[in-house]
Each structure stands twice: as C-alpha cells, then as structure tokens.
C-alpha cells in the first residue's frame, strides 16, 4: 500500500473524485495557477482546466455563497478557504444559509458543498494564521463538521463528503499536512463522516482528541505506557457534528475515566460537549471527574515561539494529565 502525507491524501481524494464526477469543481484563493496555498490542488489546473479549477478573488463570502448556489443547482463544489482565520466573512453563507437549505425547503433541495478549511496552530502563524474555529460550525445543526487527523481518514472521509448530500465543513490541520505520513489505498474508499474511531485501545482511561491533538495524544499514550505502565485508550473524534456519542460512551464505560484534549480554547467548545455527553449518560461509570487539556482562555494565539508553545497542548502536557488522572 502506498504511503502519503495528509496533504497528498487530500489531493489524491479530490483528484480521483474529480475524475469520477464531472459535477465536482474546486474554487478558492490561489487554487489554480499556484495549486493552492498548501498545494492541495497542485496540477489540477493542468488536468481539469479553468472551468473546474477556479481562482477566485479574495472574497470568502462569495466563495462559499457561489459554491452553495451551484450546489443547489446540481453541482458538487469544493470551496477552499485559504486559512481558517479567513472564514469569518463566509459565516453567513455557511451558518446562515447552507445549514438551512434542506430544512428550509422541506427536503426538496440539498446543499452538497464541501468547504475545506486548513486550520490550527503550531506553525508560528500568530493571531490570524493559527485559529481553530471549528466549534462555530459544530454548533450549527444542518452542517456536518469533520476533522480527520490521518492520511487514511483524510482521503476516505473527503471521498465520503464529496459523495454525500449534505454540506460538510472539512477541517484539515495544517501542521499535519506534511508532518503525518501513513498508508493510504490507491483506490477510492469511503470512511464515514459521522463516526469516531479508537486509534489506540487501552484500559485505564480514555483520551478524546481530533486533528493534530490526536497525534499528540497518541504520543503521550505511548510515553505513559513505556514510563508508567498506564494503558490509555485514544479515541479519534473525527466527526465534530454529529458527535459519535456511541463510541465515546462505550469507551468511557470500559475505562471509567475521560480526558479531553483540544487545541481550541476550552470554554463552550467541542470538548465541553464531549464532557457534557459523558456527564449526561455515563456519570455513574466514572471513577474520576472528566479532565481536559486545552489552551488557556486567551485569544489564539501569541506569535512569540515560547508563548505559542505555552499556549498549545503538547505530548508532555497530555502525559502529565494522564498521570494525574490515572492516579485518582
């Protein structure tokens, strides 16, 4: 089986689906001549031409809005937002409009758009190139919100997103783009866009994470296993809306302890919802309070490298929390 990085898997999924389905096109800032700011669509302009690989003005509201209109009219657009930090002008089109198409038309119309959003920190991006705004979308009924962490999931979930009939906000952690490599089948396959997955089984406690934090959690689980003999299960949330509560609760029932790890600030976040779901349904299975590892409540994220490191969760910080939780 070939190995790919996350960005290569994203490219592979898009290329394969665009060859398969002429309704799919991609639009966004610099996606054409430059091949995308992270080169996700490198070579696409040459292969698919300007009608399917569309360089847009810097106008996120229009990028998503026009993609939405085309989707309602039978197309399957991919809209790329260059950095998650730039998505705010498109909020109305996504939260206000796309999320309501199916419901508002009594099911007569659907909005099969995939909005790909590179997000996350750890890249010295500072205030406007590091944000994790996924909770805004995860809060919105009518949207599907996913955040794959591995090349395998990136390809399989992107193909599912492109073949599904709902608007999908597809978060890709930019630090993982070239950092994470893994086996990816050459052929097309679908990974579900609404299922979490146990990435490392364990018995002492459950860690819930997504995106870059999944990899940090796996690293921390390996550390505490080697150094302390703690068996931590690591669950990759993958889907942030809907949350796969079944997988979350099943894991907590088995381990009786839960640690939520995220890069977004903790108040009113995806992690809050995970903790709430656990408290609602399996409170009496818990042997300890739900614990969270997340950045401090400051505007993400400081530029200075030392402060960025202080802001971001790390394998070491997660390992410390695991030890604390395991000791309870």
């Amino acid at each position: 089986m070939p190995t790919m990085t996350v960005i290569e898997a994203v490219r592979d999924a898009m290329r394969g689906e665009m060859r398969r389905d002429p309704r799919i096109f991609i639009m966004g800032e610099d996606v054409g001549a430059r091949g995308g700011v992270f080169l996700a669509s490198e070579g696409f302009l040459q292969e698919f031409g300007e009608s399917r690989v569309i360089d847009t003005p810097l106008a996120e509201s229009s990028i998503v809005g026009i993609a939405l209109g085309a989707a309602v009219n039978g197309m399957r657009p991919i809209a790329e937002i260059q950095f998650a930090d730039f998505v705010w002008p498109a909020i109305n089109q996504l939260v206000g409009e796309a999320a309501r198409v199916r419901y508002g038309t009594g099911g007569r119309k659907t909005a099969p758009i995939v909005v790909r959003i590179p997000y996350g920190g750890g890249v010295r991006g500072g205030l406007y190139h590091s944000q994790s705004p996924e909770v805004i979308f995860a809060h919105t009924p009518g949207l599907r919100v996913v955040a794959p962490a591995t090349p395998y999931d990136a390809k399989g979930m992107l193909i599912s997103a492109l073949r599904g009939d709902d608007p999908v906000v597809f978060f890709e952690h930019k630090r993982t783009y070239r950092l994470v490599r893994g086996e990816v089948p050459a052929d097309a396959y679908m990974e579900p866009c609404d299922k979490a997955e146990v990435k490392r089984p364990g018995t002492d406690l459950s860690i819930f994470a997504y995106g870059l934090m999944l990899h940090y959690a796996l690293e921390a689980a390996r550390l505490v296993h080697e150094q302390d003999g703690i068996s931590a299960e690591v669950v990759d949330l993958r889907s942030l809306r809907p949350l796969d509560t079944e997988t979350i609760l099943d894991s907590v029932r088995r381990t009786s302890k839960a640690l939520v790890v995220q890069e977004d600030t903790p108040a009113v976040s995806v992690g809050s919802e995970v903790a709430a779901v656990i408290a609602e349904h399996v409170f009496f299975d818990l042997d300890a309070p739900v614990m969270r590892v997340a950045p401090p409540e400051i505007p993400p994220m400081p530029f200075s490298p030392l402060q960025e490191a202080a802001f971001m969760p790390s394998p070491e910080k997660i390992a410390a929390a695991i030890r604390e939780l395991a000791a309870i």
Partner: peptide, 24 residues
C-alpha cells in the same frame, strides 16, 4: 511584547493602528 509578530505591528503612541493579516 512578541504577541503580534511580523504581520501585526502596532504602536498606538504613533497612531500606528496595526498591520492586519486579514485581507481587507
């Protein structure tokens, strides 16, 4: 104090209200 970096230079005393990284 290192919080802003290259794209976000501010100096209120000089009426310099920032570099801004979001286009427009």
């Amino acid at each position: 104090k290192g919080k802003g970096g290259s794209m976000h230079i501010f100096d209120a005393a000089k009426g310099f209200m920032g570099g801004h990284a979001i286009v427009g």
